[in-house]
Amino acid sequence: MIKIQNLYKVFKTESGHFKALEDVSLHVEAEDIYGIIGMSGAGKSTLVRCINLLEEPTYGEIVIEGQCIFRKMRKKAEEAEDPQENVRLTGSDLLALRREIGMIFQTPNLLMQRNVERNIAFPLEVAGVPKEKIQTRVAELMDLVSISEKAHNYPSQLSGGQRQRVSIARALANTPKILLCDEPTSALDSLTTNQILDLLWDINQKLRVTIIMITHEIEIVKKICNKVAVIDQTRIVEQGEIGQVLLNPGKEITRQLLRGTRGNYA
């Protein structure tokens, strides 16, 4: 589904070069709920934003469903054993890619001047879906996230959990096969967090959507992920099936993240 090979991301800042990702490789299979966990500043947001090219990687390769969306090798072509062309999606190809990948954020990022219905309609308008179709699709989506009774309310009238449900419906509007989640529950209380996680789980099961879940909380990974990658200071230090990683944490950082949820005594 998603294959990331030797990905590097270096930000050029005024004070020099800042490495956000180094040599990251990741293989997400269809219908996975793949957790990416790490401390803040570890580079996990940057990684997920490379997948829909909101952030352009510096080097590496990303293949989504067999289509290479980015490739730039560190070695010059003449030095490589198996030289391949550089790939960088632009223009309408890039927009088409992004329309096929849903994304939700820590803050729901709803349009405050649009009501619930019209917020969910936004990506459909962007994709040029005809009006009649937008209406039926929006009704379906509101039903899916149980927000139908708020159709004509504005974001200022919704709770944090309701807002995030609207943003999930919106992210699913163009029936993406992949849903990128950048800490979607970090701003919510624990009860609402559970409701949102249940909803994401349902979506994964019912709609067969592959989910990539960025988080700094191991509880979230335990609850819904089937695979996990632990990212520590720009590098993935451990990855695999959830049981395997959590039962036999090979790295200190993983143990630290596990301890964090049970107090500091474990």
Binding site: R99, F122, V126
Partner: peptide, 11 residues
């Protein structure tokens, strides 16, 4: 965040 959201949707 709103601009980023719109970009992520291919606007």
């Amino acid at each position: 965040g709103l601009i980023e959201m719109a970009q992520s949707m291919g606007a």
